[in-house]
């Protein structure tokens, strides 16, 4: 089976680990080999959280620079920071709502210009799907469902060996009951946004 490599980057608290977990559970349901690795550099204290997910017949659970088939960024500047994981065939999906790091908030650093950011990502990769995932999460009924919106967009691209139904099944069986409906709505909205892009 072919190998598909996915990198997800986010800021601590954005729910990245839950989205990797859903993908992992969906792969388990679908009988697809999967390995994932997480680095949470002090996530609770505002650091960056990175997950690497490898689908298919490979033994490694981490992804080297230049090797991601897909990059999903929960925050635009983090998407840009993770470009080293991409190559010219990589598909990039990013939320466009910035969460400026504290260094910027206190005037010790400049947040990248969002238009330039998109141009740069497009220039160096195969495709960029960029949209305001926070707005869609709100529309789904929970600002915190950004992770599910992005999952929806990811599945819509068809790059992963997983279907939307398998993702929804994993959401139904493996996430908190109270959020299942909003989460599924968020996945649909994310998929629709990616289809338009």
């Amino acid at each position: 089976m072919d190998v598909t490599r996915l990198i997800i980057v986010a800021v601590g608290g954005q729910g990245n680990l839950l989205s990797s977990r859903v993908l992992g559970e969906a792969a388990l349901l679908a009988g697809i080999p999967v390995r994932m690795s997480e680095i949470h550099g002090m996530a609770q204290r505002g650091g960056v959280v990175e997950s690497a997910i490898v689908f298919g017949d490979a033994a490694s659970s981490i992804i080297s620079d230049g090797c991601a088939d897909v990059l999903v960024g929960f925050e635009p500047s983090e998407t840009l920071r993770a470009l080293n994981k991409c190559n010219k065939n990589t598909v990039v999906i990013t939320n466009m709502t910035p969460l400026p790091p504290f260094t910027v908030a206190i005037g010790r650093g400049v947040y990248p210009d969002l238009d330039q950011l998109q141009t740069l990502v497009k220039e160096k990769t195969a495709r960029l799907i960029a949209f305001d995932a926070v707005a869609l999460a709100k529309e789904a009924g929970n600002v915190l469902a950004v992770n599910m919106v992005l999952l929806g967009a990811l599945i819509q691209t068809g790059i992963l060996p997983l279907t939307a139904d398998q993702i929804k099944e994993a959401i139904r069986t493996k996430t908190k009951k109270a959020f299942v409906e909003t989460n599924i709505k968020a996945v649909d909205l994310g998929a629709a946004a990616a289809a338009q892009d």
């Binding site: 800021v11 550099g41 002090m42 609770q44 204290r45 505002g46 650091g47 960056v48 080297s64 620079d65 230049g66 090797c67 500047s77 983090e78 840009l80 920071r81 470009l83 080293n84 991409c86 190559n87 010219k88 400026p100 790091p101 504290f102 260094t103 910027v104 010790r108 650093g109 400049v110 947040y111 990248p112 210009d113 330039q116 740069l120 160096k124 990769t125």
Partner: peptide, 22 residues
């Protein structure tokens, strides 16, 4: 031939996100 890593020389400096006390 190792995978080609994109040329990032024209990417502006991205502000760091160091951990901080809550």
């Amino acid at each position: 031939t190792p995978p080609e890593v994109p040329d990032l020389s024209n990417v502006p400096e991205i502000p760091q996100r160091p951990p901080n006390l809550c």
